[in-house]
Design a protein around this nucleic acid. Structure first.
Lengths: 208, 208
DNA sequence: TCAGACATGTAAGTCGTTACATGATTCA
DNA sequence: TGAATCATGTAACGACTTACATGTCTGA
């Protein structure tokens, strides 16, 4: 029952790129995947421990030249096999629980002012996000055009020089996942405008 | 810690419309809110019990003329006050965990075929949803134009005749929440096409 | 010197799903 | 008569967050 263990596979997937510490993984998720994924320390560290127990990763303490100690996890062959299997399984559709939509729905027997207020709250929320995304999008679009690897993404995509199809493909996929976020946010903003207009129109009609 | 209790407020909100049984609430969520909300029995019934304990709702067994017994919950004045308070609080932005996006991101060091397969899976998933939404959208758009209350939504919006601004506003808000679902799905489909085109273009370039 | 980032973890609790369990009623 | 739907719930589990706890290193 409920055997999804998505944190496990997310970690395995990131470790399939390169060995990382728990802290690295948390940072990576925050800077590169935050518009479609999240992990908390409370999930991350226990899961890393379980990965080692199950023989899917190994743990090693790295004291590189005076730097602070880091516990680095490396995926094993068995870990790669399990990750491969998971990648081939159908992804389960995200179950959505959008509190703002719920509240908006529940205003239908309350006042139109309240509906409008919620829409404006939603708009502010989404506009802020859009600004973030647009900044990153511009950087990535430029990198793709000019075939350079911008400093901002080196931590995420690795420090290999951007030459050959492989590295450029990584950059493209990274860009596309961000585009998903941009298009989603833009659709929500479009919806807000459409809804505000519809409420205004209804109000005018009701008053005639 | 983690004192959101969204199920509690969702139930309170629905009970603020009319008295309902646990089963009614489940059905209502499934038919009217499924594109932005979900509740499971395992959450619903214990929460309903808690509502009664806290004096936010009352429980009554209804044996209406030979029909099967139903346990009907009615919101109290205290319940309405708590619901009002919650409605005025800022909604917390939904934390998103989109497994398909994660997988797509993780294909960036694997094969383009795998990226394409995931996009096609996503497209199929979203197209199916869009068909559902479009059917309901057509019914609701027609009802709004003609100012009638279609049979399909009577269970949700109550059986009051559609006259006056109040009932028509309910229908409008219901329609708008569905539009949110439609626009979101359309944006995802747009993204799929854009991404497939980008991958095709990259493949051609890489081969030249 | 002190803020901020690096770094690793645990404890406690809540949230939420799924499977199970049970039985009545309706209608084809 | 038997499938579908109505109807109510519990048990077990897994998922996930938040708060707590602790300490180091870097650079302005």
């Amino acid at each position: 029952m409920a055997r999804k263990q998505r944190t496990k596979y997310a970690i395995l997937g990131l470790l399939s790129w390169k060995p990382m510490s728990g802290y690295d993984i948390k940072k990576m998720v925050e800077v590169a995947l935050s518009h479609f994924w999240s992990e908390s320390y409370g999930q991350l560290f226990p899961t890393l421990g379980r990965l080692v127990e199950e023989g899917l990763a190994t743990r090693a303490v790295d004291r590189g030249s005076g730097a602070r100690a880091r516990t680095v996890y490396t995926i094993t062959a068995k870990g790669r096999r399990e990750f491969d299997t998971w990648m081939r399984e159908a992804a389960d559709p995200p179950r959505v629980r959008n509190e703002l939509q719920l509240k908006f729905f529940l205003t239908s027997r309350r006042s139109t002012d309240e509906s409008v207020r919620l829409l404006e709250e939603y708009r502010a929320q989404q506009e802020e996000r859009l600004r973030d995304y647009k900044d990153s999008e511009a950087i990535l679009a430029r990198a793709l055009r000019e075939r350079t690897l911008p400093e901002e993404v080196r931590g995420v995509l690795g420090s290999r020089a951007l030459r050959g199809a492989a590295a450029s493909n990584e950059l493209l996929i990274f860009y596309l996942t961000l585009r998903h976020g941009v298009l989603a946010v833009e659709a929500r903003l479009e919806w807000v405008e459409e809804s505000l207009a519809a409420l205004r129109a209804a109000r005018t009609q009701g008053r005639h």
